[in-house]
Design a protein around this nucleic acid. Structure first.
Length: 555
DNA sequence: CATCCTTTGAAGCGT
DNA sequence: ACGCTTCAAAGGATG
């Protein structure tokens, strides 16, 4: 498997890990992300965050941390900001990070639930997953925050990061709220109401914390009642759900738990959805994956008859009756959820397609460790999903969507492209690339590292200078999308992939070109490409068509 | 209103 | 085993 260089270690300790992370952070913050984008916003952000961060953050870090908040207009943001600031303050004070400064980004730690190691449920510091938030205001992964890691656990478990967290503070807490979409301070969305209706009876019931899945936003009430933050974490033998937010003390609990807050948490999962599928997991945790029609309708129209559950009426098909259970999110999807807000915040772009391109690039630029976090989370999610819905299979959703993308490949002609794609933004890209660090070739090689520890092995490699940078980016959309992943998934051996990658690769991406013109105007380089691109096999594709703006080329 | 677009990854399905 | 297809999220754009 992927060798993570670091190898090893479980035992490694925190020290190592920390360091490494720290390094990353530093690098990143210096380099990558901020590069230009921030500047614009700098002012803004500085004002925003300024207060909070004063403590230790070094100048460098400041940049990253203070990301300009693009959208000051929202009140919620402001409030959030405040909280955030405070949170930062606390973190620092609390010594959230051992190292004096975490430069650019504070990592959020999430309890690593799944890790086999912790059977007792105690969250060990080491077992946490970090989400790094460069920009506080974004959508924070909710899960992260929460955990209160009071339990002193030995660090033997995973090497992730030994961060010392103080019980009193929840680093993320404040952060969490930020998702504007879902949440607004002061007035929690109705769906967040504390009580969940029992599908059958219709009677509101308050879920026990233990019942909640990370995906579910905790209701304020529930939160308050949570006895121990970690208590619910360990549902069953080792199977943990994602951490929700355990001991939140935030004044606005609702915020804390907001779905969006957690990257991990999928917004789609909402409490009301809860209905117990026949197969409700022993844990009794309703999984967010179930989509309730009321809340969210799938474009396809498949709704979940969850409602039906309540009021069983004559439904067309039995099948439909069943709630539509969505596929568990994969690592990238989790990442997207988490990062999307950030990206959106930084640039004016709103089109998801464009954002996704950016995110795709950023994904590749993530260090292995970082990706590993997501792989791990994804794995857990799948695991949880399978537990919750034992009989479910992806096949169930097959064909439900009406939309079918026709194969793109061929159909689009040059003409199309010309019309649609092309968005400027590219210029920025190249710069970003300059920095990167992945020593290893592809980050994704670790498909899902069996153990977290593995993933973490070594922080990114430092050296940015690679040929990669040199190359111009070119990727628009890949000619053919589908199958790229194999490489990742199966990490050949350690670096075999490098073959492809190294030279070419991936790095060169061109700016994202969408088939349709997106307004990239505001896109910042930083967004696009992060530090170091990992090259994956598919990327190779990109190379093939360097300049093409085209989106799908046909084969 | 429905679908497209776009990304990566997982899983299904077909050969 | 291999390759292709579908779906997952998201939201503006398009038909």
């Amino acid at each position: 498997m992927p060798q993570l260089n670091g190898g090893g270690g479980d035992e490694l300790g925190a020290n190592d890990e920390m360091i490494s992370f720290k390094d990353e952070g530093e690098q990143e913050d210096k380099i990558s992300e901020n590069v230009s984008a921030e500047r614009d916003l700098d002012d803004v952000k500085s004002s925003l965050v300024n207060e909070s961060e004063n403590n230790s953050s070094s100048s460098d870090s400041e940049q990253t941390e203070r990301r300009p908040q693009p959208r000051p207009d929202h009140e919620s943001y402001e409030k959030a900001r405040e909280y955030f600031a405070e949170a930062l303050r606390r973190q620092q004070d609390g010594g959230f990070f051992k190292s004096p400064h975490y430069p650019g980004y504070p990592f959020l730690m999430i309890p690593d639930l799944s890790s086999p190691y912790l059977s007792n449920g105690a969250l060990s510091p080491s077992a946490r997953t970090y989400l790094h938030m460069k920009w506080p205001l974004l959508d924070v992964p909710g899960t992260a925050a929460l955990k209160d890691s009071r339990s002193p656990t030995p660090g033997h478990l995973s090497n992730k990061v030994p961060v010392v967290q103080h019980a009193h503070m929840h680093p993320l807490t404040p952060l969490i709220t930020y998702s504007n979409e879902h949440f607004s301070p002061g007035t929690p969305p109705s769906h967040l109401s504390p009580e969940i209706l029992d599908p059958k009876t219709g009677i509101p019931r308050t879920p026990h914390p233990s019942e909640l899945s990370p995906y579910y936003p905790l209701s304020p009430g529930a939160m308050g009642q949570i006895p121990h933050p970690l208590g619910w974490l360990v549902p069953q033998q080792g199977q943990h759900m994602y951490p929700i937010t355990g001991g939140f003390r935030h004044p606005y609990p609702a915020l804390a738990m907001n779905a969006s807050m957690s990257s991990l948490v999928s917004s789609r999962f909402s409490p009301h959805i809860v209905h117990h599928p026949h197969g409700l997991h022993q844990t009794g945790i309703p999984h967010p994956a179930i989509v309730s029609p009321a809340i969210k309708q799938e474009p396809n129209g498949e709704l979940s008859p969850a409602a039906q559950a309540k009021s069983p009426g004559p439904n067309k098909k039995e099948d439909e009756r069943k709630p539509h259970i969505k596929k568990p999110l994969n690592a990238f999807m989790l990442y997207m959820k988490e990062m999307r807000a950030k990206v959106v915040a930084e640039c004016t772009l709103k089109e998801s397609a464009a954002i996704n391109q950016i995110l795709g690039r950023r994904w590749h630029s993530l260090s292995r460790e970082e990706q590993a976090k997501y792989y791990e989370l994804a794995r857990k999610e799948r695991q949880l999903h399978s537990q919750l819905y034992p009989g479910w299979s992806a096949r169930d959703n097959y064909g439900k969507r009406k939309k079918r993308k026709r194969d793109n490949k061929t159909d689009s002609t040059a003409e199309d492209f010309s019309m649609r794609n092309k968005k400027p933004c590219m210029q920025y890209l190249p710069q970003e690339k300059m920095i990167d660090s992945p020593g290893s070739s592809h980050g994704s090689m670790l498909d899902s590292p069996a153990t977290p520890s593995a993933a973490l092995a070594s922080p990114a490699a430092p050296a940015p200078t690679h040929s990669e940078q040199a190359q111009p980016l070119s990727l628009t959309t890949k000619p053919d999308r589908q199958h790229h992943y194999p490489v990742l998934a199966k990490p050949p051996s350690s670096s075999s992939s490098s073959s492809s990658s190294s030279s070419s690769s991936g790095s060169q991406l061109t700016p994202p070109l969408l088939s349709r013109p997106l307004p990239f105007s505001s896109l910042h380089a930083s967004l696009l490409s992060p530090p170091s691109p990992y090259h994956h096999s598919h990327h190779a594709l990109y190379q093939s068509q360097p300049l093409s703006l085209v989106t799908k080329s046909a084969d």
